[in-house]
């Protein structure tokens, strides 16, 4: 059984079919990439999976659970975490605080014991901290622990956002354009990290990406999208050779 299956997903904004009858399945342990020109509906699919948008049609199934109508805040508990194209970190908090928010799906909240800060809360905090430190070590963020997000360079913020998503201990990680805004060297690092996440943490990755170098170096399978419809699906090489895909990118006589 696939980890995530998307069946006949569609969403219409007014008259525009932003996503139209898209189906695909992500298998456990792979890196699955969605490519396509701007406005093809890639981020919209992410927003549908994280339940920010309600689909007009179709079903979403994760690990055997139909989550098509689940509220957005329960998706993280299901085991799906995500990053955002333009980085949505908690700007006026430290890196450590940001990562600890990632522990939210695993936090048992009891207002009164928190106000009194009972020993149980303290123990839980330390357990969360240990988990967070594992991720910090994995992604080499030690130097930035106490820094405010607002003072960090863009490249580091991207990594912090990925780390925050990993702190939720997801089974599936959604990365929305992990290389956008990064320089060549940082993009190279990003591809190592994605490999690490897949190998060492065993997390399945679904990403949207433009940089074809990164796509072909890390992806197991690729899905090409245009105008909200699936153009092609297969290994990176197959999809890159597909005439429809080439036409969509280079523009052709239609």
């Amino acid at each position: 059984m696939s980890l995530l299956s998307v069946e006949n997903l569609a969403i219409h904004f007014g008259g525009i079919k932003a996503v139209d009858q898209v189906s695909f399945a992500v298998e456990a342990g792979e890196v699955f990439t969605i490519i396509g020109p701007n406005g093809a509906g890639k981020t919209t699919i992410f927003n549908l999976i994280s339940r920010i948008y309600d689909p007009t049609e179709g079903r979403l199934i994760f690990d055997g659970v139909d989550f098509t109508t689940m509220p957005a805040h329960r998706i993280a508990g299901l085991g799906i975490a995500r990053t955002f194209q333009n980085i949505e970190l908690f700007e006026h908090a430290t890196v450590l605080q940001n990562l600890l928010v990632g522990r939210q799906p695993h936090a048992r909240v009891n207002l009164l014991s928190e106000i009194l800060f009972l020993p149980s809360v303290r123990r839980a905090e330390i357990a969360h901290r240990e988990k967070v430190e594992e991720i910090i070590d994995l992604l080499d963020l030690q130097a930035y622990r106490e820094q405010m997000i607002a003072n960090l360079p863009y490249g580091v913020r991207k990594v912090v956002e990925m780390a925050r998503a990993l702190c939720t201990e997801p089974k599936l990680l959604l990365l929305d354009e992990p290389s956008s805004g990064l320089n060549v060297e940082e993009t190279q690092d990003m591809s190592y990290w994605i490999e690490d996440i897949k190998r060492r943490l065993g997390v399945t990755v679904l990403m949207v990406e433009h940089d074809m170098g990164l796509v072909s170096s890390v992806s197991d399978r690729v899905l090409a999208l245009n105008y909200g419809r699936v153009l092609a699906q297969g290994s990176p090489e197959e999809v890159q050779r597909n005439p429809d895909v080439i036409k969509a990118y280079l523009g052709g006589e239609e």
């Binding site: 994280s50 920010i52 957005a72 805040h73 329960r74 998706i75 993280a76 508990g77 975490a81 995500r82 955002f84 949505e88 970190l89 908690f90 700007e91 006026h92 908090a93 928010v101 990632g102 939210q104 799906p105 925050r164 939720t168």
Partner: peptide, 10 residues
Amino acid sequence: DSEISAQSMG
């Protein structure tokens, strides 16, 4: 700081 990502963090 960010409602949208707070929501996606559960």
